[in-house]
Design a protein around this nucleic acid. Sequence first.
DNA 1: TTGAAAGCGGTACCAC
DNA 2: GTGGTACCGCTTTCAA
Lengths: 339, 339
Amino acid sequence: MKKLTLQDIASQLNISKATVSIVLNGHGDEKRVSKATQERIIQFAREKNYRANHLARGLSLGRSDTIGLIVPNIGDIYFARIARRIESKARRSGYNVVYSSSGESGERESELIHTMLSRGVDGLIIASSQKNREEILKLKEIRFPFVLIDRFYPEIETNFVVEDNKGGAAQATKQLLKTGRKRIGFVTLKDDLEVLHQRLEGYRHTMQQNGIPVEDNWVGKLDYEYAESDMLEQIRTLVSAPAKLDGIVFATHFLAASGMRALKELQVRIPEDIALVSFGQMSAFDLTEPPVTSVAQPLDELGDRAVEILLENLGGGITDHRREILNNRLEIRKSCGTI
Amino acid sequence: MKKLTLQDIASQLNISKATVSIVLNGHGDEKRVSKATQERIIQFAREKNYRANHLARGLSLGRSDTIGLIVPNIGDIYFARIARRIESKARRSGYNVVYSSSGESGERESELIHTMLSRGVDGLIIASSQKNREEILKLKEIRFPFVLIDRFYPEIETNFVVEDNKGGAAQATKQLLKTGRKRIGFVTLKDDLEVLHQRLEGYRHTMQQNGIPVEDNWVGKLDYEYAESDMLEQIRTLVSAPAKLDGIVFATHFLAASGMRALKELQVRIPEDIALVSFGQMSAFDLTEPPVTSVAQPLDELGDRAVEILLENLGGGITDHRREILNNRLEIRKSCGTI
DNA sequence: TTGAAAGCGGTACCAC
DNA sequence: GTGGTACCGCTTTCAA
């Protein structure tokens, strides 16, 4: 069963490819193809279950009604959720979405961008590894429509939709301060990611504002591919002298989860001995013991806005960049202690 | 900045498209293109950062080195993880992966299959909505390479890689029996999904084997889009007379999570009043109170095998179908009670 | 109202 | 060794 082509239809109906194409693309009336011919074509196509070849169509049109989405890791629930949202939203505007993971590698990200371009995507939504400045600049230079999400390059003028990392971390820190903690630490990754810097900055800034000098040993940094044992070590250091923290803000949901594991293993009581807040959520954070206070990230809004902005750009004509910073909301539960 | 094409290179170097194509595809030596020419071409291409157009290439070749992945919902951590695994694995064999969510809709799934085909993917991995028998049959008929994962059509002969749903549910049920429970119920979705049927069957069978007749009101079924309040109602019914269960097996990880929420709200003690086991995991199930006993699904293996089988098929020549059922492992924690 | 033909960017066969 | 060219399947302009 060979795929049916336009030419096949044309031959079998004894009309030209051109007419068939016009009719099947809904331009029949406007191009004054006779009702009868239109009817025959449509009927035949439906009957034979004709499907246009996207490859050929894209090649000819230079357009594919497809947008590409590149994320660091689709296996991370955060990006998976955003991806899903983007997909539904885009679909409602008639766009398909193809996604891929860069694995936090700048090189891979660059490769993916090229693959997607050469596949003829009309636009790109990228949660960048931030190790790929060159390629982003190039995209900008050729005026290819794209929107950065979650991660962006502060010094490059682009469209972006991000959350208020600094503000979120500030909220988290303030909450711990409110419950009477003073020796509050921050656990993050060593990675050079702007979002992490900003979260750290939000924490530092808040501490400073409240007259508490943050000591170097209050901030723990782990490798991206840390083992649970690394976390255990880190936590052990943070809870014992000289740091002797009484509160911790975790920079990501998975850091918070493994941090809790470590705390439990060390038999540190939460929130009595150590209060904690997670930046980012996990679906069971309300079921843990204690339930985890977390900074809820505006996933849906982020996905929606990214698509909206991209579509604006695809429409063409837009020249200035959209730079949106979405608020996140603190979900207060028991882990941060009570006021 | 217009995209550089093969023809551009050819013109600027005063040689033919054909030669450029040959060289850039690494067939220079075999086609006896002079070293000098090869050098010039490669040099030039690198300098100008030439990237072949995948669309054109695919159209011409009828091959794209891409495999398509269709899942019900990429926002579900289960599928997101599998997707990630499939992506890495495929990549190592030189394949790109494009994925999309069907949203459990047979129609959408069918659409996606067609889109992917017309985009020239070389093969397909599908976690089917199971509302799309027709399309799957058609794929089979045209001998298009594909592998079903997680969900399959028992009566259609295809490649598939699934987990042992019946066995997993049996393990879960046995564990509850071991801890002395007798009135064990099962909470699942109304959806007509083979995996769910099999899990239910595994539970029923085990109960029967142990001489405990399962009463109708021991099995709760929720709509796919259930609200937390529906779950609450369901649980309330199951724990009170006449059912008065002392153990529950939840058919999916998210059912287990919201089931726990409901139990907590109803102030039912776990595992004292109700012991529970979840089919499927969530990343924080070890941090909940109590930690949740769950059937660990072989995500990685499933993804890996799917890719391996698909690649075998792409190689061609394979005619008989691979039907693999992977074992899952019970992770015992406190929620199922102690022996 | 319809058809012929060029072109999108590659690949590959066949001459020279 | 290298070049010409047909073709992949579709869109679109122009002519009839």
